[in-house]
């Protein structure tokens, strides 16, 4: 079994049923997960910030870092596996986007990430069928390509599924 580990700003996709895709400790970052039943492919991006205009060089070097560049990059990656390049038929799930307690607007990066991602997905006519967003805790997310089952974990909490 292969394990594809995604760091901050990474994205990846697989149609190998032996693979798991995993990303560790999402704080305010959001994991976007694409599931394509047609090709039995799974894709994931670990998005750190909402908008690439603050650092275009970084967006070129690591498109998965920003919501507005990560979604097209992940769709292009999925298209290589035979998925529709505009995301038709792809199911979307979202996890992460936490915030520290009693935070103010400036520090609500988790919320801004989730909003930016949803806005970009809408521009493709896509919407999340399930989400586990917000709260005051970090999440580690893992998905098996074969079962398409998402498992979340957080220190001090029992694992749960999405």
């Amino acid at each position: 079994m292969g394990q594809i580990i995604l760091g901050v700003g990474d994205y990846g996709a697989s149609n190998n049923p032996q693979d798991d895709i995993k990303t560790f400790a999402l704080g305010s970052c959001v994991s976007v997960i694409f599931l394509d039943p047609q090709t039995r492919s799974i894709g994931m991006a670990h998005i750190a910030l909402p908008d690439s205009t603050i650092n275009k060089a970084k967006a070129i070097e690591k498109p998965g870092y920003f919501a507005d560049t990560a979604i097209p990059a992940l769709l292009a990656q999925m298209a290589k596996l035979g998925c529709d390049k505009r995301g038709k038929g792809i199911k979307v799930k979202l996890c992460g986007g936490a915030n520290v307690m009693d935070t103010n607007d400036t520090f609500q990066i988790g919320k801004r990430n989730a909003l930016a991602i949803k806005k970009i997905l809408w521009s493709y006519g896509m919407g999340a069928i399930a989400e586990d967003l917000g709260g005051n805790y970090s999440r580690t997310v893992s998905i098996s390509v074969e079962a398409g089952q998402i498992t979340l974990s957080s220190p001090g909490k029992p694992n749960w599924q999405l």
Partner: peptide, 9 residues
């Protein structure tokens, strides 16, 4: 912490 580097629980 919000960047994903906390110390656990």
């Amino acid at each position: 912490m919000i960047g994903g580097f906390g110390t656990g629980s």
